[in-house]
Amino acid sequence: MRRWLLAGTVVVVALGAIGLGLLPTTEDGFRSTAVTSARDTRSAVLSTREVGAAALRGRVLQSYVNIAVQRARDQVSTAITDLVDTEVPGPSSQRLRDEVLPMLTRSAARINDVATASSTEDRDALSRAVDELSGLAGELGGVR
């Protein structure tokens, strides 16, 4: 008797979980994904900006810059994948997507610039990349 009860509960919970997964995305659900992606990207962007600024002042080892940039880039690509994989439920979501997605791809590119500029010891490029990351962080912070 207890076993059947247990098995029944497991089946109901499993079906519930599958059902939730199959439900179409709502506008609110899409917005929340977009905001999370923007937030995570902003975090990676600002973290890389600090790394770039430290590199400008000669405070970090190149091996460290490479790894820090690579991690930040991975975070941004995860954010991009999350957003791209989410089904677009309506026109307002489409507008949000068109607004956020380019910011994310630009972030990935500028984060990359930090590693390139730092490894070629191109101070001008590095300082440009750092400035652009600051601007991007501001834009990303505006996503609500």
Binding site: D40, R42, S43, L46, S47, E50, V51, A54, Y64, I67, A68, R71, Q75, G141
Partner: peptide, 14 residues
């Protein structure tokens, strides 16, 4: 103050 989240060990050292 920056609102940066720590997700990896390299950030701990930054």
């Amino acid at each position: 103050p920056l609102g940066v989240r720590v997700e990896s060990l390299d950030q701990v050292a930054l």
